[in-house]
Design a protein around this nucleic acid. Sequence first.
DNA 1: TTGTAGGCGTTATCAT
DNA 2: ATGATAACGCCTACAA
Lengths: 343, 343
Amino acid sequence: MKAKKEITIYDIAKKLKYSPSTISRALNDHESISKNTTLLIKKVAKEMGYRPNSLAASLRNNKSKTIGIMISRINRPFVSSLISGIEETARKAGYNVIISQSNDKYENEVINAETLYNSRISGLIVSLSMETRKLEHLRRFMDQGIPIVFVDRVPDELDIHKVIIDNYTAGYKATQHLIEQGCSRIAHFAGAQHRNVYRERKKGYLDALKDHHLPVDNDLIVSFKSLSFGEGEKATRNLLDLPQPPDAIFSANDTAAVSAIMYAKKRGIKIPEELAVIGFNDDPIASIVEPALSTVIHPAIKMGQISAQRILQHAAEEDENNSPEVTVLPTELLIRDSSKKKA
Amino acid sequence: MKAKKEITIYDIAKKLKYSPSTISRALNDHESISKNTTLLIKKVAKEMGYRPNSLAASLRNNKSKTIGIMISRINRPFVSSLISGIEETARKAGYNVIISQSNDKYENEVINAETLYNSRISGLIVSLSMETRKLEHLRRFMDQGIPIVFVDRVPDELDIHKVIIDNYTAGYKATQHLIEQGCSRIAHFAGAQHRNVYRERKKGYLDALKDHHLPVDNDLIVSFKSLSFGEGEKATRNLLDLPQPPDAIFSANDTAAVSAIMYAKKRGIKIPEELAVIGFNDDPIASIVEPALSTVIHPAIKMGQISAQRILQHAAEEDENNSPEVTVLPTELLIRDSSKKKA
DNA sequence: TTGTAGGCGTTATCAT
DNA sequence: ATGATAACGCCTACAA
C-alpha cells in the first residue's frame, strides 16, 4: 500500500496555468491577487484535495504555528483547565499546541525547553516546576525574540510577561473571612516559599492577622513540601495535638484542606464549629467533601486563554514593542459550609 | 534586538572541513562514519551551539516526530491521565505531542483531524467524541499509512488498533458485587449506547442480572446524555420516587454515582444499607464522598503509555506488517463503603 | 496583477 | 568512509 502523492501548489499551478507564487499568494489571501483569481484558485485547490504542508511553510518562515506549553503535570484540575483554555484559543487561530510535563523537576524542564526550542515554536507558555529557581534554560527563547508568557507559577523578575492571580489578596481575604467568623487561632498550610503563589498567599495570611491585631503563632504555620493529602493529614494531626489547637485552617490548596476536614472529622472535631477550613482552587473534591469546602476560585481556563492570546498577539506584531505586560486576574472567595460559623 | 543566526550543519562542515553530509550522518549516528569522526563532530557541534532544525528534517522526511491526540476534553481526570501517559512515553522517544479537543462535537473532531493531518504527524491517538459515528475524517491517515490507535472510546470496526479496558467484565463484576451484597433491584446509569464503553458496561450489567436470575426492570435503567452531576441528581430523584425504588445503583461513571449518593443522603436514605452505589473510573471525588464510593479502576496512564508505544513501534518499522492489535487492559473492582452491606 | 528564481536546513542517492 | 547534488514544499524579493 503506497501512500498517495500529495497535491502541492505546483500541481495547482500546472493545472491552472498560473505560477506557483500566484497560487501561494492566493491561498494566503495576499492582497495583490485579484478577488476572482483567489476565489478560483481556492476552489480548484479544494477540488484537487490540496493540503497545505505546514512543515514547508514553517521551514521557510523558520517558525511553526505552534505554541509550546511547559507545566508540572497535566493531570491536575487546575493545570488541565489551563491547558484547555490555551488549546481552545490557539486552535481557533490555527495554531497547534505542544505540551511538555516537568513532573516538577528542574532537570526535565531544561530538557523540555530544549526540545521545544528545536521545534521552532512561535511562543512558549510556562508554569514553573516546583524546583525551578533560575531561568537560564529559557534565555534562548528570549534571545531569539520568541515570546514567553509565564502563568500562575511565575518568576519574580519584573521585565517579563505574566498572567497571574492576586494571590496576596486572595490569601488576605480568606484569612479575614475566618477572622470574621470569630476564629482567632488560624493555622496556615503553606507551600514552598520560593514559589510566588505560595509566598503571596502566606503574606496575605500574615497581613490579615496583623491588621486584625491577632498574634502570629509559628506553631500554626505548617510548611508543606507538596500540599498532598497525606501531608495534610499529618499536619492536621500535629495541629490538633497542640496544647492550644487552632480553631481554623487556611490551606494553600484544596487537597490538603480536604484532608484536614476528613482527618479532623475522624477525630470527632466538628467542622466548622470547632475548626473552620478554607482551601484554594475549587477543585472538584471541594464541593464533594462534607461539609463542603470554602475555597478561592481560580479562573484557570481564562488564564489559559489570556496567555495564548498574548502569544498570538506577539506573533502577529512585526515590530518589537516588547513592553512586558502583567495581567492580574481577580479571584473570588467561595464560601461554603466548612467555614460558616454563624447563621 | 536581532535574532542571532542559527548554526547549521554547513557551519560545522566549514569549520571541520567535512561535507555537510558527513556532519548530518555523524549527528544521526550513521554507521558508515567512523567512531572518531562521529565523536569529534558531535563535540564541535555542541561547542558551536548547534541545534538541529527538526522542521527541515521533517520536511525532508515528510514526517514530523510528533504524535497527535484527539480527545473530548482535557480537563477530566481520566483524559488528563491518559495524555500524561502518552506525553511521558512520547517524549522519552524524542517525539512531541500535539493535543486537540473536540468538546465532544463531531464537527470539531473533523476540523482537528484536518489540522493534525496537515501537520504531518507520524501517528494519531484518538478517543472519539460523544457524537462521532463515522470515521471518514480519519480515512486520510489510514490511506497515507499513518498509524492510528484508538483508545477507550473506540469504534466497533475490527481491523483497527485499539487500547481498551474490558468494559463488559467490569460492568458484570460491579453488578455481581451488588448482587452479592444482597441487592435485587439494581438500577443502572447508562451512557450513550453508540459508544462502546457505555454499551459494554450495560451489557455486563444485564448479563449479571440474568445469570443471577434477577429480572430486568426497564424503569431502573436510566439513559444519560452526559452522565453529569445534575443529570445524576435528577435520575436519582426519579428512581427514589418510584413505587418500588431500587436498592442499588451501578453508574457508568463516578460523577453521576457521587451525585446519587449526595442526593440520596439529603433525602435521608442510608448508604449503603438502603441504597448501595458503585461507580466507574476512580476519580478523585470517589474517595472523598461519604461513604467513599466503590468503583472500577481504570488504568488511564498505562493506556496512554501503551497507545504511544504502539505508535512508536509502527513508526520504527519500515515494513508494513500492519496487523491491527487490540490491547485489553484489566480493570479492578475497588470496594469502598458505598456498597458494603455486610460486615 | 503575475512570474522567476533562490533558498529555508536537512537527508538520501549516487558517486568516489 | 566521505563528498556532491538534488530534492522536500513553500514563500518572497525582485522583475516584468
